[in-house]
């Protein structure tokens, strides 16, 4: 009986750690993503970071939950350890996610001084702050 209780406790502890791990991963992904308005149908399911030849390599996996193709616009911000921007503004880049597709977006930091990053995201179905007055507005970044 005693061993069954200890097994139960161990299982509960493992489950708690597992959930804590998941929530930590979700939290760390969210801390790197900056969406212009609320993303519809698109989510970032994984984010991998490594340093290769002194440059930060990023791989983000995007998931389109809709059956429709979803146009996505993104760009990276490169920061140093103090949070200062170390590179100029990148151009917005278009990407189409097919219905129900999971796709990777890869990026390489432009300079070794980039040790942190943010991903700016926008979908054309966003209700963006840029078009806050127009509730049903769809927009391309920079084209209000």
């Amino acid at each position: 009986m005693k061993s069954a209780t200890s097994h139960m406790k161990y299982a509960l502890l493992c489950l708690a750690l597992l959930f804590a791990g998941f929530s930590h991963a979700a939290e760390s992904i969210a801390s790197k993503i900056e969406t212009l308005g609320e993303l519809k149908n698109i989510s970032v399911t994984s984010l991998k970071v490594r340093k290769q030849s002194g440059l930060l390599n990023i791989q983000a996996e995007f998931d389109n939950s809709s059956v429709e193709n979803q146009p996505l616009f993104y760009r990276f911000k490169w920061l140093d350890a103090s949070g200062f921007s170390v590179w100029g503004e990148e151009p917005w880049k278009p990407k189409t996610l097919y219905g129900k597709q999971k796709a990777f977006i890869n990026a390489i930091a432009p300079t070794p001084s980039a040790t942190d990053f943010r991903i700016e995201l926008q979908t054309s179905g966003n209700k963006t702050p840029m078009n806050a007055s127009d509730k049903d507005a769809t927009s391309i970044p920079g084209h209000p």
Partner: peptide, 15 residues
């Protein structure tokens, strides 16, 4: 925005 996605025509553009 000079970094905006330019989709005015499908000729070669700034983006």
């Amino acid at each position: 925005d000079a970094k905006a996605v330019e989709a005015v025509t499908n000729e070669f553009g700034s983006t």
